[in-house]
Amino acid sequence: MPAPDETAAPPQPLGEAGGAPSPGGSAAALPPPDADLAAPPPGPAPPPLPAEFVRYAVALEAPELAWGHLNGRVTAADTGTLAFLRRCDLGPEAGEAFARIHARSTDPSPLAAVCRETVDGRPGGGDAEDPRRVWDYLELSHRLSRGDAAGGEASGPQLAAGRREFLLSRAASGRGMNWRDSSALLGTDRPEEVDAAFERGEELVGVAVIGLALTHPDPTAILPRVACALDRALASSDPRLRHQGIVALAHTARLHRTVDRRCLDLLRRCPRGSEADDDLWAYVPRRRLPWWLWRHRLGEPPRRWLRRVGKALFGGRGGG
């Protein structure tokens, strides 16, 4: 499969219906900041959260990850995993603090030391005001995602406030990813980052869509962003963004063996013989594919096939 074109012209910003998040959002519903950031919260500590949940739920800052490890919110192994992923998201310069955490993640004592240094605001400490608050939000979000409805309706505003502050606002500002580095964007985890990039008109948003297709486990989160890329490309006659959308659709078909109607409708308007045509035919169940893709792959049926179909349907009348 050809490598993605990383020099796509910037797409037009999304309109009001695009659904991209607005920056800001109050965090008043979250617990208030605590002066001692390294001290454990009162009461029994919640169990560690898995990295595979955290990576998709929020773009962590380095002090937040460090605080989470020191207070048992994430294991040492998952601390190393998350530090590596965030270092990849941000690149060598902006991700230096994460690189330092990752480099020491296999040895408990050095890892604890670098985490304390990061939380205390020493070199690489970042700008988070209270790392505890993001973990309280993550713990609540994870608990509700597992079907634990403790807290009832009172959890709704708290969850929404945390999502606005720690996910949507950071995505809207662009601080969660390095939008100048295509290799970093090929590891895009969070769909909200892509939505906000469309809103800002990021030049490399098509690369981020490919990255989302490669990394996200849920095709229902990927396909709407693929469709957005194809729709923008077709509306603006942008062949580079169109190709990036096609490559993302091909990856989704190959990895998840599925497609949706909107992507198929948009793909039909693209030139035939693309990577998406090939991978849809190879990996998605044929019964789910449209007639125009069948015709492209198999060619026009011979006239004798048409005669046989006519005989089967009409009993020899009008079969040719």
Rank of each mutant, 00 (worst) to 15 (best):
R254A: 15
E202T: 11
R257P: 07
P271W: 08
C263G: 06
L293V: 08
L293R: 06
D277I: 03
R190D: 02
E275D: 14
S182Y: 13
H256C: 00
P285D: 11
P224H: 03
V284K: 04
R286D: 06
V207D: 13
A196N: 00
T258N: 01
P302Y: 08
R304F: 12
L214F: 06
R295T: 07
L234Q: 15
A213Q: 09
V194K: 00
L186R: 05
R232H: 11
V226D: 13
D265Q: 14
F198M: 01
H251V: 11
R180E: 15
R180H: 14
H251W: 15
E192Y: 08
G187D: 12
R269N: 06
A197K: 07
D195S: 13
I246K: 04
R261Q: 13
F198R: 01
G201F: 09
W292C: 04
R225T: 06
R200M: 10
W305K: 10
P239C: 02
R287F: 01
W281K: 00
E275H: 03
V284P: 13
P302M: 01
R288K: 11
Y283S: 04
L266N: 09
P191L: 02
S236N: 01
R297L: 00
G211V: 05
R303G: 07
D278Y: 14
R304W: 15
P191Q: 03
C270V: 13
S183K: 11
T215R: 15
A227K: 03
L298C: 06
R175Y: 07
D218F: 07
L289D: 12
D279A: 06
L223S: 07
R200Y: 12
R262Y: 11
F198Y: 13
L280S: 01
F198A: 01
E199C: 07
A248V: 03
D218T: 02
A233Y: 06
L298T: 11
G211N: 11
W294M: 05
W291M: 05
T220V: 14
L298N: 14
F198H: 09
V205R: 00
G299I: 09
V205H: 11
R272G: 02
R175V: 15
C228I: 09
D218H: 10
R303P: 08
A227L: 03
G201A: 06
R269L: 13
R288H: 14
L289G: 02
